[in-house]
Design a protein around this nucleic acid. Sequence first.
DNA 1: TACAATTCTTGATTCGAATCAAGTTTTGAA
DNA 2: TTCAAAACTTGATTCGAATCAAGAATTGTA
Lengths: 224, 224
Amino acid sequence: MDKSLIAHRLSEFYMFSELQPAQIEHLTNGTRLIDVPRGNTLFNRGDRAHGFYLLLEGQIKLGVISPQGDEKVIGLIQPGQSFGEAVLFLERSFPIYAQATMDAKVLLITREAIFNILDNDVTVVRRMLAGISARNRQLVNDIESISLQNSTQRLIGYLLQISTDSPNPERVQLPANKLTIASMLNITPETLSRVMLRLHNAGLIEVNGKEIVITNVAGLRTFE
Amino acid sequence: MDKSLIAHRLSEFYMFSELQPAQIEHLTNGTRLIDVPRGNTLFNRGDRAHGFYLLLEGQIKLGVISPQGDEKVIGLIQPGQSFGEAVLFLERSFPIYAQATMDAKVLLITREAIFNILDNDVTVVRRMLAGISARNRQLVNDIESISLQNSTQRLIGYLLQISTDSPNPERVQLPANKLTIASMLNITPETLSRVMLRLHNAGLIEVNGKEIVITNVAGLRTFE
DNA sequence: TACAATTCTTGATTCGAATCAAGTTTTGAA
DNA sequence: TTCAAAACTTGATTCGAATCAAGAATTGTA
């Protein structure tokens, strides 16, 4: 992947979409393209941050692992999304690991490059603040749903949410395997399987592998 | 409370500690002092944000409430700490409510004032980013502990953490009533009571109301 | 100081979801 | 194309913590 293509991808990224070509070019020199084969980790908990990341292709899973080996998936990154910003502004190491769930191409935007832009461009500052704030809100939502909803309600909420983002809201595609989805929802794979069966038996959804057809949106919304 | 005192408090706040007196004065004009009697709410979920807040006196509880009326405390704000920054940078309303648990004096730093400073001062930008990032990390930690630890481990982790911040690490003071602490730890008050009894019976802590003496730090750290 | 309201504790029971177990299906790599 | 590994499902059982209940202690205020 050559420089001009990287520059193009950077200029498409919302955070940098207002930058002038000269700034983009400068920024491009402060990036590094990284290939992460499926299953490999981009960074581990405890690693120092050298910048933040923009995912170009593939998928990245963010998560934590307990001393007992239990895993909790915190987020799934899709192409066009960035991650790792928050760690940059703290003199701390990553509290999470990042692992490719599909062969991934990731752009590392180095600390120096982004700090330089931040010092010179108000728009990027605003968007960086907005980006981290959005992540913040997402985390608060996650805590709320883990704390105040049972497993069925969490799955329903999740299905309705991805349905909203889907081109065809009735027919949604799970973005990862069910083990990962279960971990994001803070339930075991067994429970996920059983809850899906209950929703199916209630005539609300059809499940075909990762494809889920919501046959009764209103019913799903009010299911107890 | 007069202007010069407000200016003083602003200049003590880490985010603004590098600002020149003229900037502080300008900022002071963009603030509003708000008294919140114990039990009253400063803002509710869904309210529009007019700025962010710096707590001068008292204590503020941040939380969410489910449609069924169940409450989950997300954070406890102490004097000198700010809150509500993240909402400012999104065109969204508050996802949480803020309620005074003690008579509180809060400084509202208006959107216009802070945006003006952000556009003109690189230091404040860095510290704002660091502040929101720190909140981010805290939330990730909370999700991790809710997801991967049982109620006993969560309480132990909490006690060890507040012990670290305490002037006398062996003798810590709970910053709120046990109902609130329990909600922060995602357990019921009954369970909190029982877990404390277990730790006491194991010879690890002494409990006297809100005061807790850690009689065996190492034992607490390794308790199972 | 009194006392009503709130907070906290302790006991009995229930319940949602985890765990353990054993297939079945799907997947991806040789 | 094959086949071992991984993912998924379904059933039986266990378990941690919630809920329900009632009394004790504390607190704030009239």
